[in-house]
Design a protein around this nucleic acid. Structure first.
Length: 391
DNA sequence: TCTGGGGTCCTCATCCTT
DNA sequence: TCTGAAGGATGAGGACCC
């Protein structure tokens, strides 16, 4: 006999003001105060704001300078991603103690399918409350939980439950719950899409649900229309997928001041290539496609990409290829605000090495030796001469 | 107001092959 | 040999998410 599945087996667990909460845990003097985690430089933005800071209208992605004008007494803390990663790992272990079906969405939130955990831990809403209490008890942090028939609804519920609440949406309550929500609550509807929908008089989820398919396609295109139509009536067939290999990786840097010196740009590109190459090797993958990203002083952004004949995880090669893309732009002292480098089309490193058997490059050996030294003595142990400060 | 960093996915155009 | 259609790969840009 097949055991029956509960009608609302999906949990979405979302930490409240995650980075700010972790910082308050590390420094109890911050507890109860407006805390902003984010870049301290002139161009930084807020990555996380405590609830005490949100009272002033501050939200994440807001320029730090503006946030401080709204709340001058706020404490600004520089983000420490290693610490957040550490907490995230412990959070994950906690999730895995109730179900193997855990799909992390980011450091601070995850979907859990607890459809098979009922006999051990009780119904989903009981498991949700148990997790929230254990996160508070064992990690000292606040979390909110959504319990619903599918992922999209569970995520909406955790959002409505904040801070530190739990919302259980029963299958029979979906239509009434969704109908009143603004379109911005639908997954995939950001500022642009919302504006487009509003031009056609669509303001609520119920409006979208009542719109004919062909009309939606005309407004937002095929893929988005199909997704919107399903989500608006509470349908979401996506399963909880425990592990998905990364499809790409990237790193970018916004300069404190715009840069117009080609030599500086090339040197920064080498630094980015080093970072990406090390992450590729750590992940035991190699990349075939690389993308150079430039943001000019006026915020206009261009990308240029190139697909290589053979996948690589070598900084020297990534740098040479991306520098060629940079040269092809003929910037001629144009002021650059941001430089980025990304890779995609990832393949397992073993397969990449087989493809490159005849390609015995000494730099490969040098970079691997550098990895060994960095792993043993720290990141600062090995640096290219070209990246050392001149002064 | 003045916009970070790391990702994913979609659309559209172009080129190449069949 | 030429032509056109179809489809895949690639490149660029944009929207969205946390």
């Amino acid at each position: 006999m097949t055991p029956s599945r509960p009608a609302e087996p999906i949990l979405h667990v979302d930490m409240d003001a995650f980075y700010a909460s972790v910082e308050a845990l590390r420094d109890p003097a911050l507890a109860g105060r407006p805390v902003l985690v984010g870049g301290l430089g002139g161009r930084g933005v807020v990555a996380s704001a405590s609830y005490e800071a949100r009272v002033y209208g501050i939200h994440s992605a807001m320029p730090m300078a503006r946030a401080l004008r709204l709340c001058p007494q706020a404490v600004v803390v520089s983000p420490d991603f290693a610490a957040y990663q550490d907490v995230s790992q412990r959070l994950r272990e906690l999730f895995l103690s109730v179900t193997p079906l855990v799909e992390p969405l980011s450091l601070d939130e995850a979907f859990l399918d607890v459809g098979g955990s009922e006999r051990l831990f009780g119904p989903p809403e009981v498991i949700g409350a148990l997790l929230r209490d254990r996160i508070r008890g064992e990690l000292g942090l606040p979390a909110s939980v959504g319990v619903a028939p599918n992922k999209h609804l569970a995520k909406l519920c955790s959002g409505k439950a904040k801070p530190e609440g739990l919302l259980h949406l029963r299958a029979g309550e979906v239509a009434a719950f969704l109908g009143r929500l603004p379109i911005r609550d639908l997954w995939g509807v950001g500022e642009q899409t919302a504006a487009r929908l509003e031009r056609f008089g669509l303001r609520t989820v119920a409006d979208v649900a009542g719109t004919a398919g062909p009309t939606l396609v005309r407004i937002v295109g095929h893929a988005a229309a199909a997704q919107l139509a399903s989500l608006a009536v509470g349908e979401d067939r996506r399963p909880v997928v425990p592990y998905e290999p990364a499809k790409g990786m990237s790193t970018e840097e916004t300069f404190d001041r715009d840069v117009d010196d080609p030599a500086v740009l090339r040197r920064e590109l080498l630094r980015l290539a080093e970072t990406i190459a090390r992450r590729l090797r750590r992940g035991e993958v190699a990349a075939r496609t690389l993308t150079l990203k430039i943001r000019y002083a006026n915020f206009a952004t261009v990308t240029r990409s190139r697909t290589l004949a053979l996948p690589t995880d070598h900084a020297t090669e990534l740098h040479a290829e991306s520098a060629a893309l940079l040269d092809a732009l003929r910037l001629e002292r144009v002021r650059v605000r941001l430089l980025g480098l990304g890779v995609a089309n990832l393949v397992p490193a073993g397969a990449a090495r087989q493809l490159r058997l005849l390609d015995d490059d000494r730099w490969q050996q040098v970079e691997r030796a550098a990895d060994v030294a960095r792993n043993r003595f720290g990141d600062a142990a090995v640096t290219r001469a070209a990246l050392l400060d001149d002064g």
